[in-house]
Design a protein around this nucleic acid. Structure first.
Length: 822
RNA sequence: GCCGCCGUGGCGGAAUUGGUUUACGCAGAGGACUUAAAAUCCUCGGCUCGAAAGGGCUUGUGGGUUCAAAUCCCACCGGCGGCACCA
């Protein structure tokens, strides 16, 4: 047991009772929303890394509170989803029961760390009152045309037995379990996030986020400015020539005269077959083989290109040449139109393909206007050749002209794809949709493209997740809920016939897109939050979380906020004004993981050292945005530091009359400035080091003036909230603790800029750039005075005489340095 | 392959953004207190030559710009992260 645990428990109780950390959500004058990504709870408990993040942002929040803001720092649990469910599966517990256990443990730990949480507003995503509104959002998405079902090749995790969104696949592995992802052709629910691609990209400009995260989002959205062109088709058996044509997207229309073949993806070819194209056996065989290979390791970039001639030809719109259409899996179906114009001379992939299948390579862009025997594709801009009337033109400049000439147009393409939202799992909010085969057939659905599908009427929400015994994922492409007939059989809201309820649940990432709205909840309202409170508190002023959410939660939340904006329920479209990513805590140079057995459980440390020591230690390790190695030896230094702070008490001056010496006063004011600046920049490590320097100074004093002690406690308060409160209350001799006399509601000390100014400084004297003396000098001395001072120094004299020369040039940096160049 | 970030003592990390490299802390050495140890307190501490005064070298490596480079530029080496046949 730590020496501090008693006072820590005491203050935690008193703070809670007096509501020190509960701002008035309706009336607050200077609202400041201080948010951390809420944790996925698992029974293993809170990770030391999360503790560092949580206490880290709490330091910031406490600082802001002392600066006079009404700080709102809510907390909750992101308890739905595969993280919790996979853990339940592993230990053979039921997630619904397990949730109650983990919840208790998590809240215990979250209390233990001493954060200024607004506990009244806590929430859990698996609470029916919460997911009622997650379902409401889904239903709204459907009503606004932003949710739809589509059959397509999707990511399938064979271990989690569910489909996943593209964002949840990381280098072909499942974000949750690390299994290799397979492709399956399934009908699934999607959110039309691609409709927001441009806006998601644009408004990145106006938010204060790390550039690296913005870049990651930009890359993910993958905007590409190019051109679309049509290639008429001939030679399709049983079809009139030029009746059909093929659309392609290119960024290089300047190379159009060099197009010697067209390639379509196996998926597109398959769709042609489904539409009635009679392809040869060889072509059919290739397509089915390629489709199987898709998504497996063999189909990697390094593999040799494969393909087959389709038997069909296309007409190059620029020179009317007849060119063959090939099928190959080097063309992606999911980007552009699933078909490309191949320019082997100027694209390395096309070049490789042409070499392998002996196809024509025609150079049309040349560095010098001459023809070459190309060994590799020439991909730079240059002068056009073999391009009829465009010969001699600059390739860059000719892009738009050639496009117009060939009847094409400008086109912007995005890499981003729609958000696959359905999951064949149990532990999530059931998707609030009903399919009616009776009135659906009559095509009277509210949305023509989704005939027969109806959202659950708002008055019938939530669709409660039933308790079912066997909640294990089935791997059949259906959720375990599909087996529960009582659940799935339902009356059609339109025609009242028996209909089928959707049994998939929604992605956990939908739960977390809007939780920070729900902290500002309103009971019995028509929207999931209180409009006035949201107007007051959102967007979030400071958000901290992991960079691993760059293109997951952070992208999805932005999308949902933009949708809310369009539905006119909020008046802003970026949810997080300022975001900072915390660093990763490692142990013995390696990422903490169960398999390595190097997970650090915070409980023992908090018990042994106390929350204040741990908070300080975690903050002192490195700047919050940097990671660090967790080494327990370092804790003892912090432990000593706090013990010495405690001892300051016995040094306190008898009366308030005593003052500090000029030098100590200066250090005190410099510290006020530095600690404040450092907290603002999340450089807690240097703030703490400054407090240590200040303490070292105080310890040298015969007695400590009251005002210095007060200021010191306030500066330390965000880091060590319990001990500072204890010392503060003792010092102030408050008999009864009231909210407003808490140290955490005192105002942050102000520094006097006059007192910070130094009247002397260390003059660095260099000769030819080498330091030869460091002299005490008066602030503001002139170059002449500095030189005189330097010349008076023995070592300088000696050095100058040995060089036997007088300075050719002197460099003088006021109040800093004098460099004599001989 | 492309894009982004990083490299400072035995260790975590500082360095006012071009001006004393190594603040603060850990670990270490010496000393005080103690019968002894722990705790606490004081002192030292990049490497190297020197008894000292003082000098030389040093921020992954090599070069450049500059009176002056951890900081700016170029090349290379090593590490981390993102994207990856994106037409």
């Amino acid at each position: 047991m730590s020496a501090y645990s008693k006072i820590e428990k005491k203050w935690q109780k008193l703070w809670l009772r007096s509501g020190v950390y509960e701002p008035d959500l309706k009336k607050a004058k200077k609202p400041f929303y201080n948010l951390m990504m809420f944790p996925y709870p698992s029974a293993e408990g809170l990770h030391i890394g999360s503790v560092r993040t949580f206490t880290g942002i709490d330091i910031y929040g406490r600082f802001k509170r002392m600066e006079g803001y009404d700080v709102f720092e809510p907390i909750g649990l992101d308890g739905f989803g595969m993280h919790s469910e996979n853990y339940a599966l592993r230990i053979g517990a039921h997630p619904m029961r397990l949730a109650k256990v983990t919840e208790k443990n998590f809240y215990r730990q979250l209390e233990m760390i001493g954060n200024g949480f607004a506990w009244k507003e806590k929430l859990e995503t698996y609470d029916t009152e919460y997911y009622k509104w997650t379902q409401w959002i889904f239903a709204q998405m459907f009503k606004k045309g932003l949710a739809y079902r589509k059959r397509s090749p999707v990511n399938w995790c064979p271990s989690c037995k569910t489909v996943l969104a593209d964002e949840q696949v990381q280098s072909e592995e499942c974000e949750r379990c690390g299994s290799k992802i397979e492709k399956k052709d399934l009908e699934q629910w999607f959110f039309r996030i691609t409709d927001y691609a441009e806006r998601l990209l644009e408004s990145l400009e106006k938010i204060d986020w790390p550039e690296s995260i913005k870049t990651a989002q930009r890359n993910w959205i993958g905007r590409s400015e190019g051109y679309s062109l049509k290639f008429p088709l001939i030679g399709i058996p049983g079809q009139e020539d030029r009746k059909h044509s093929i659309d392609i997207f290119t960024t290089r229309p300047d190379t159009l005269f060099g197009v010697t073949f067209v390639v379509v993806s196996p998926e597109l070819a398959k769709r042609w077959i489904n539409a009635g194209w009679h392809a040869s056996d060889e072509v059919q065989k290739y397509i089915s083989k390629a489709l199987v290979l898709r998504g497996s390791k063999e189909a990697s970039v390094e593999a040799e290109k494969t393909g087959v001639f389709s038997g069909i030809y296309a007409i190059n719109p620029a020179n009317k040449e007849k060119i063959p259409v090939w099928v190959s899996d080097y063309v992606l179906d999911t980007y552009g139109t699933g078909a490309i114009m191949a320019v082997p001379a100027h694209d390395s992939r096309d070049f490789e393909f042409a070499k392998k299948f002996n196809l024509t390579i025609r150079e049309v862009v040349s560095p010098d206007g001459r023809d070459h025997d190309l060994r590799v594709a020439f991909t730079d801009p240059g002068v056009l050749i073999n391009s009829a009337r465009f010969n001699g033109a600059n390739s860059e400049a000719a892009k738009i002209e050639i496009t117009k000439f060939a009847g094409g147009d400008r086109k912007i393409n995005y890499r981003l794809r729609d958000w696959l939202i359905s999951r064949q799992r149990y532990w999530g909010p059931p998707i609030p949709m009903i399919f009616c085969g009776v009135c659906g057939k009559s095509r009277k659905g509210e949305r023509k493209d989704m005939a027969g599908w109806y959202p659950i009427p708002e008055k019938d929400l939530p669709v409660k997740l039933p308790f079912i015994k066997d909640y294990r994922p089935r791997g059949t492409g259906e959720s375990p809920l599909a087996k529960d007939k009582k659940f799935s059989k339902v009356r059609c809201p339109k025609c009242k016939s028996w209909a089928r309820r959707e049994t998939d649940v929604s992605d956990t990432f939908l739960d977390s897109t809007w939780y920070f709205f729900r902290y500002l909840d309103a009971k019995n309202k028509r929207i999931p939050f209180d409009k006035l409170k949201v107007k007051k508190w959102l967007p979030v002023d400071m958000y901290i979380g992991g960079a691993e959410h760059s293109v997951l939660h952070l992208l999805y939340s932005r999308f949902v906020a933009k949708a809310f904006y369009d539905w006119k329920i909020i008046n802003f479209n970026e949810p997080f004004k300022k975001f900072r990513a915390h660093g990763l805590i490692i142990k013995d140079g390696a990422k903490m993981s169960k398999s390595k057995g190097n997970i650090v459980n915070p409980d023992g440390y908090f018990k042994d050292f106390g929350a204040d020591v741990m908070r300080l230690y975690l903050a002192f390790m490195a700047p919050l945005e940097q990671g660090g190695d967790f080494r327990d030896q370092g804790i003892s230094g912090i432990d000593r530091f706090l013990a010495r702070v405690k001892k300051l008490n016995s040094k306190l001056a008898r009366t308030s009359k005593e003052g500090l010496s000029e030098n100590s006063e200066k250090l005190l004011h410099k510290s006020i400035k530095k600690v404040g600046d450092d907290i603002e920049n999340l450089h807690y490590n240097t703030a703490i080091s400054q407090l240590m320097i200040l303490l070292n100074e105080f310890e040298k004093l015969p007695s400590l003036p009251w005002h210095a002690f007060e200021i010191f406690l306030k500066l330390l308060a965000p880091f060590a909230p319990h001990l500072t409160e204890e010392l503060w209350q003792n010092f102030k001799k408050n008999k009864i603790f009231k909210k407003q006399n808490s140290i955490h509601l005192q105002s942050w000390p102000k520094f006097d800029s006059k007192k910070i100014k130094d009247e002397s400084f260390k003059l660095i004297v260099q000769i030819n750039g080498r330091v030869r003396a460091v002299l005490d000098a008066t602030t503001g001395i002139s170059e002449k005075e500095a030189i005189a001072l330097a010349m008076d120094n023995e070592n300088i004299k000696k050095n100058l005489s040995s060089l036997a020369g007088s300075p050719k040039k002197t460099i003088f940096v006021p109040d800093k340095l004098l460099n004599l160049v001989i």
